[in-house]
Simulated assay, not measured.
Amino acid sequence: MKVIIDEDKCVGAGQCVLAADQVFDQREDDGVVVLLDALPPEDQHSAVEDAAARCPALAIEVLK
């Protein structure tokens, strides 16, 4: 699995962090997503897929 984020689409809702805090974080100044692990381990795949599904801006792309 590879994770790609589009910072320009991100609205800072934070749903990704709630779903997968080992893979996503947010910048303190504006709340935009920060990708902590573009190639997360298998035990994080379900959480990453959940995060992508929760993102209201569709700023997370998951490649398998």
Rank of each mutant, 00 (worst) to 15 (best):
E7Y: 03
L63M: 07
D6R: 06
R27N: 13
G12P: 10
G31F: 07
C16A: 10
K9I: 02
V48L: 11
E42L: 03
Q44R: 10
L58I: 02
K2I: 14
A47D: 13
L36E: 12
D6L: 05
V11P: 00
V32A: 13
D37C: 11
H45A: 12
L39S: 14
H45K: 06
V48W: 07
V23R: 05
V34D: 12
P41D: 12
A57P: 02
V32Y: 11
D8K: 15
R54S: 08
R54F: 12
A47T: 08
D50F: 02
R54Y: 11
A57W: 00
L58P: 00
D30Y: 14
E49Q: 13
D8I: 03
A52T: 06
L35A: 14
V33Y: 02
G31V: 12
I5Q: 05
V62K: 01
A57C: 07
D43L: 09
C10E: 03
G12T: 05
R27S: 05
Q22G: 14
G12K: 06
K9M: 09
V34N: 07
M1D: 04
K9L: 15
P40G: 12
A38T: 07
D30L: 12
V62N: 01
C16I: 02
A20I: 03
A53N: 09
P40A: 13
E42D: 13
E42N: 08
A20K: 02
C55T: 03
A13E: 08
L39W: 04
D21K: 14
D37T: 09
D21N: 15
M1V: 13
E61M: 03
C55D: 01
A51S: 15
C16M: 12
L58A: 11
D8N: 14
A20Q: 10
I5T: 15
G31T: 05
G31Q: 10
Q22V: 03
D30H: 11
G31D: 07
R54G: 00
D50E: 14
A57Y: 01
A20F: 01
V11Y: 01
Q26R: 14
D50T: 12
A38S: 15
P40I: 04
R54V: 01
K64A: 15
D21L: 04
V32M: 06
D25L: 06
V23F: 10
V23C: 04
P56T: 00
A20T: 08
K64W: 02
V17R: 01
I60C: 01
G31Y: 06
D25Y: 02
E28L: 13
D43A: 12
A57R: 00
E42Q: 14
A59R: 00
G14K: 08
V11W: 02
A59N: 02
E7A: 15
A53K: 10
L36S: 10
E42S: 10
L35Q: 07
P56M: 05
D25C: 10
L39E: 15
L39C: 11
K2G: 11
D25P: 08
D30E: 14
D25E: 14
A53H: 04
